[in-house]
Deep mutational scan, measured.
Amino acid sequence: MTTFKLIINGKTLKGEITIEAVDAAEKEKIFKQYANDNGIDGEWTYDDATKTFTVTE
């Protein structure tokens, strides 16, 4: 398992979430669903070196 981080830079929601997953593709799906469930629609980036997804509205 690898630890992945999501950084949220939303208009109404900001924060960080850290979760373990098998791979980045699995985690991306979970993070995007979390963002969608919380009304966050923005630009996504991924840094493989730090295993960090960022979504910015």
Rank of each mutant, 00 (worst) to 15 (best):
K11V: 13
Q33I: 07
G39W: 09
F4T: 02
I19L: 09
V22K: 10
L6R: 00
K32F: 10
T3K: 13
K11W: 11
D23Y: 11
V55E: 03
D47M: 02
E57H: 10
F53K: 00
Y46R: 00
T50R: 04
E43G: 04
I30A: 05
K51F: 11
T3M: 10
K29N: 10
T50C: 07
A24T: 12
D23T: 10
K51P: 01
D41R: 10
D37T: 10
G42P: 02
N38S: 07
K29C: 14
A49L: 11
T54G: 01
T12D: 07
K51G: 04
T56W: 13
D48V: 05
I30N: 02
K32N: 06
A49I: 09
T3F: 14
N38L: 15
T54L: 05
Y34V: 04
E20S: 11
K5G: 01
I19S: 07
K27N: 12
G15D: 09
D23K: 06
E16G: 07
N9R: 11
V55C: 11
I30R: 02
I40N: 02
I30F: 12
T50D: 02
G39C: 11
G15N: 07
E16F: 13
K11E: 07
K5Q: 05
D47I: 03
T50Q: 03
D41H: 12
T18A: 06
I8K: 00
N38I: 13
E26R: 04
K11D: 05
T56H: 08
T50M: 03
A25W: 12
D47G: 00
D47R: 01
A35H: 02
T52V: 03
F31S: 01
T50W: 02
K29T: 09
W44M: 03
T12P: 05
T56S: 08
K14N: 09
K5A: 03
L6P: 01
E57R: 13
G15H: 13
I7A: 01
I30Q: 04
E26H: 08
A35Q: 03
A25Q: 09
T3N: 04
D47P: 00
T54Y: 11
D23Q: 05
T18V: 10
Q33C: 12
M1D: 04
T56A: 04
T2V: 13
A35K: 03
I17F: 13
A35F: 12
W44F: 05
E16S: 09
G42C: 13
Q33G: 04
I30S: 02
A35V: 07
M1C: 15
K11T: 12
T45N: 05
F4K: 02
Y46W: 05
E20T: 11
G39P: 03
K51E: 03
V55M: 07
T54S: 05
D48N: 05
I8L: 08
D47K: 00
Y46C: 06
K51L: 06
F31I: 11
F31T: 01
D48M: 04
D23R: 05
I30G: 02
F4M: 03
V55N: 02
I19Y: 05
L13W: 15
Y46N: 00
A49P: 03
G15R: 15
E20Y: 15
F4R: 02
I30M: 06
T45K: 05
F53S: 04
G39A: 08
T45R: 04
T54H: 08
A25F: 13
T56R: 05
I8S: 01
G39Y: 06
E26C: 12
K32L: 11
T50A: 03
K29F: 10
W44Q: 00
